[in-house]
């Protein structure tokens, strides 16, 4: 994980302990699926959710028009896909207790208070997955040399999907635009392949540094969109102050657009500073 995260920046600051690991989907021999998702709890703790999912077929009586539509072939982006929900677009969320009541506020509070999970987690302490020390894994001095306990060393052959979680996680509980995250607090429940389904071409990602701390994401988007379709803008922000940390990543759909943007925008004056724009390096 550590090496993946670092591909977004050589910048120490970016090494956010709140970065969430990649979600996983495992197909079990018995036909079921196991999904592992990560999210940040309300208190900023990382929660790993493991779900076993049974895929079943239910029969339903419906009117003939509905039955007919059920047989429609998929089209557009779904063209050629087999019937059945696709994990990349359709996932099951965590259970919500919803019972209308005039005393809903009181009920809600009670449930919060007695939430078994919460108490269960209350006494847990931070424990490094690599050396079992009492620090975050990301802070582990051995993170670059050792694999996490009970985990295989990073698999080089695995599709190297960029760890967007770092971006999403960096801002913790605050709002993260959809294109910037793959595991939000609760949507994280099953967003595993949200990005996996759409491989990002990292070669089209620019690293923008020397940004003013007052930089806004929308401004960046506006500036960089002039050169082509921007698929993602990530502006690193301080968790506490909400101010920019001085660097950002801008991903283009097309590397050529990125190339042009890099040439034009490097040395561009933004705010009171001169931007430095270069291609993001992939760290190995």
């Amino acid at each position: 994980m550590a090496s993946q995260r670092r591909e977004w920046a050589e910048d120490e600051e970016f090494d956010d302990p709140n970065a969430l690991p990649q979600n996983q989907v495992i197909s079990n021999p018995d036909g079921t699926k196991t999904t592992i998702t990560y999210r940040l709890s309300d208190s900023g703790k990382k929660i790993k959710t493991t779900r076993k999912i049974k895929i079943s077929v239910v029969k339903e009586r419906v009117n003939p028009r509905v039955a007919e539509r059920r047989e429609w072939a998929k089209f557009g982006r779904e063209q050629g896909h087999p019937p059945g929900p696709d994990m990349s677009t359709t996932t099951v969320g965590e259970n919500i207790l919803f019972k209308p009541s005039l005393q809903w506020k009181a009920v809600e509070k009670e449930e919060e208070a007695t939430g078994a999970l919460k108490t269960q987690l209350k006494d847990k302490k931070v424990s490094c997955r690599i050396c079992q020390g009492d620090h975050f894994t990301a802070r582990c001095p051995f993170k670059d040399t050792l694999a996490p306990v009970g985990e295989a060393p990073p698999d080089e052959s695995r599709p190297d999907s960029p760890d967007l979680g770092a971006g999403g996680g960096a801002t913790g509980g605050s709002y993260v635009p959809p294109h910037l995250r793959n595991k939000g607090k609760d949507a994280g429940a099953g967003s595993s392949s949200f990005n996996a389904g759409r491989e990002r071409d990292d070669l089209a990602t620019l690293r923008v540094t020397n940004l003013s701390e007052f930089a806004e994401e929308q401004d960046l988007r506006d500036m960089f969109e002039r050169f082509g379709r921007v698929t993602r803008v990530f502006l690193a922000k301080d968790r506490d102050t909400g101010r920019a940390k001085g660097f950002a990543f801008v991903s283009y759909q097309d590397r050529l657009d990125a190339q042009r943007a890099c040439e034009k925008m490097d040395g561009f004056g933004y705010g009171h500073l001169i931007l430095k724009v270069e291609f993001a390096k992939r760290s190995q």
Partner: peptide, 9 residues
């Protein structure tokens, strides 16, 4: 109630 999350956008 278990919501289904649709991530098409």
């Amino acid at each position: 109630m278990r919501p289904i999350l649709l991530q098409g956008h």
